[in-house]
Every structure is written in structure tokens, then in C-alpha cells.
């Protein structure tokens, strides 16, 4: 089965990013394909590399990066949601005149059409949120 996963909440505040991660891992372990993980609303905060959790806590951001790199998963942060919340890549920094970037490796910023396309292209859309 081909899956798109949507995540609506940021890391740590809600369990949704954790649930989505363990679900994604289990799906990959079973040989399913993840077409895309789409981060929306505060979910875009999963994609900042500036996150620094205490050493005895999980690093949710780097966990996503590793999963994406290991399995070649397309992880998309919604551009409109990211702009509102200050998640910036090189292209966005240039377009909006920002003096820094903070996007984590393995993520890219793109439009909402990527979520709609996920709905069209995948066998299932699974949404995690608050």
C-alpha cells in the first residue's frame, strides 16, 4: 500500500508527531511505501534543525531526518504554514529577505498542492493531530 501521512502538530507539545513516527516505521517495516509525509499547521515545527531537546529525551527532528534518509521519504513542510511560523530554507530566506535558515536535513518546503497530490496518488491518507 502507498501511504501519505499528514502531521498537524509540532513536536513535544502533542504526541501526534511520535505516533506518526512509529506508525511510519511500522508501515515501512511491513514493506509499504510512504509516498509523502506532509507537515501542516504547527506540524511544520517538526522541521527545524535548531531543536535542542535535553539529552535524555528523544530528538524528534533528527529522528525524522534519519527515517527520511534511510528510506528516501519525501518530507514536505507546507510553505504557507512554514512562513507563518518562521521555518525557513535557502529559497524562502532569499525570497523573503531573511538573514538565516533553520530547515532540518531531509525536509523541503512546498505548497499545499503536495498534500492534495498525496491524497490523489496514495491508497491511504492518515492524519495525525491534536
Amino acid at each position: 500500500m502507498k501511504l501519505t501521512i499528514q502531521i498537524n502538530e509540532g513536536p513535544y507539545q502533542h504526541q501526534s508527531a511520535d505516533s506518526a513516527y512509529f506508525f511510519a516505521k511500522a508501515a515501512l517495516d511491513k514493506g509499504h511505501e510512504i509516498f509523502r509525509i506532509f507537515f501542516y499547521h504547527d506540524g511544520v515545527n517538526n522541521g527545524t534543525r535548531l531543536t535542542t531537546p535535553p539529552q535524555d529525551d528523544r530528538n524528534i527532528v533528527s529522528r525524522w531526518t534519519e527515517l527520511a534518509q534511510e528510506h528516501d521519504i519525501d518530507m514536505v513542510l507546507c510553505v504557507a504554514a512554514a512562513q507563518r511560523r518562521g521555518i525557513v530554507d535557502d529559497g524562502e530566506a532569499e525570497r523573503n529577505g531573511k538573514d538565516a535558515t533553520n530547515i532540518a536535513p531531509g525536509f523541503r518546503i512546498s505548497g499545499l498542492g503536495q498534500l492534495v497530490e498525496g491524497g490523489i496518488q496514495s491508497d491511504r491518507l492518515v492524519v495525525f493531530g491534536d
Binding site: M1, F22, F23, K25, R124, V126, V127, G129
Partner: peptide, 20 residues
């Protein structure tokens, strides 16, 4: 069920409604 069972339920049903 465990997470593998969660994946199986997503597969065995035609669609998923998340009541957020």
C-alpha cells in the same frame, strides 16, 4: 494491537477518518 496492527487496520479498511 501494536503499531504493526495499526498499519494492518489502515490497510484492511478503505479509508481513515481521524477525529481530531
Amino acid at each position: 494491537i501494536d503499531y504493526a496492527g495499526f498499519v494492518d487496520l489502515v490497510e484492511s479498511n478503505d479509508k481513515v477518518q481521524s477525529w481530531l
